[in-house]
Design a protein around this nucleic acid. Sequence first.
DNA 1: GGCCGCTAAATGAATAATCATTCAGATTTT
DNA 2: AAAATCTGAATGATTATTCATTTAGCGGCC
Lengths: 194, 194
Amino acid sequence: MKSSDKHEKIIRAAVKVFAKKGFFSARISDIAKVAKVADGTIYLYFNNKFDILISVFDEEIGKFIAQTKKLVDQEENPRKKLEVFALKHLSMAKENKSLAEIIQMELRQSHKLIKEYRKTIFSEYVDIISAIIRQGQEKNIFRKDIKPGIAKRAYFGALDEMTRLWVLSPKPPYDIKETAKQISSMFLQGINAE
Amino acid sequence: MKSSDKHEKIIRAAVKVFAKKGFFSARISDIAKVAKVADGTIYLYFNNKFDILISVFDEEIGKFIAQTKKLVDQEENPRKKLEVFALKHLSMAKENKSLAEIIQMELRQSHKLIKEYRKTIFSEYVDIISAIIRQGQEKNIFRKDIKPGIAKRAYFGALDEMTRLWVLSPKPPYDIKETAKQISSMFLQGINAE
DNA sequence: GGCCGCTAAATGAATAATCATTCAGATTTT
DNA sequence: AAAATCTGAATGATTATTCATTTAGCGGCC
């Protein structure tokens, strides 16, 4: 068997096990069992347990961010860009529930390395939002008194919290498209009547 | 020494240690050392390590939610209520950084018990928001097509994400009042120019 | 084709370290 | 001098990691 297969198999098993039991409660032997590999084999591909978690993030989140950027770039209108971003974010959570769960739970860990990691990777992601907002402000489409640095976090936070609902509930209580629409609409028009 | 003192001392020490190292990496002996108490003494006041974490939540978060409710009730106008909520939320994070950090990190844990706990306690908190929104809709102040169940999470998520910024950064990069204003304004008016 | 020798990959039992928890005895309070 | 409280060393369970051994893959040779 080619070694790349094993690497892949272990990562996939780890996603499942971490999602189910959480990083600290997951045992290497659990992952080995799911991956159908000996405990020791894991150490041929990863330095330690923590390294597996980081690899999961690196390999899976990277792909996702790239996809999001591409989609957003295809739209012209900043309003539309925000909608597309919301839809992509929520869709990902629905289609890849285990990974979403790990991001929700484990990327919030207070471990120093994870904190640092989170800062870097999330910056790249939420900066997609602030870039859109700046664009919109330049085109006089968005209010100039809104700080992009605050708005990006507010928008991301709103989506992230909806994702948490998906992750914690067995069934999505709201429709994805409907939710993305509501959230982008709230941000664009606000909730004030008239 | 009165026993209530020890209980308090241990809780306070636990808040510090959990915030610094995270629940799983925190050792009982760490907490004991900070509390200036023997390891065994902790077990006279708490059943186990997990029980300490739950007690931290129960005793500290409970107070905070009660305070928030009281403040919100003092306002008449739903718009004003939302502003007050945001300000209280962010102020709490600034004034009680260790606790905010624990809420951010540990309450996201995938441990079954924590998941359940989170559902209960957070529902109580975010339902303050949905209640405000429903009130506003009844008075024709807020759009009727906004679902309170989505809006409450979006609003909470936005604030929660700003809190994360506080927790992860050594210095608050934005002014608390300014941030609360921006977020409530975004939700009320939206970011569209005119 | 079949056999041999070699290397890389894989195995999983044994190791070693970590800590939550306990409890027999010390100390303090009443 | 009981009772209540506290202590911290010892226990025991858990598991990440290691490593001596086995297995599989491959090229050269007859």
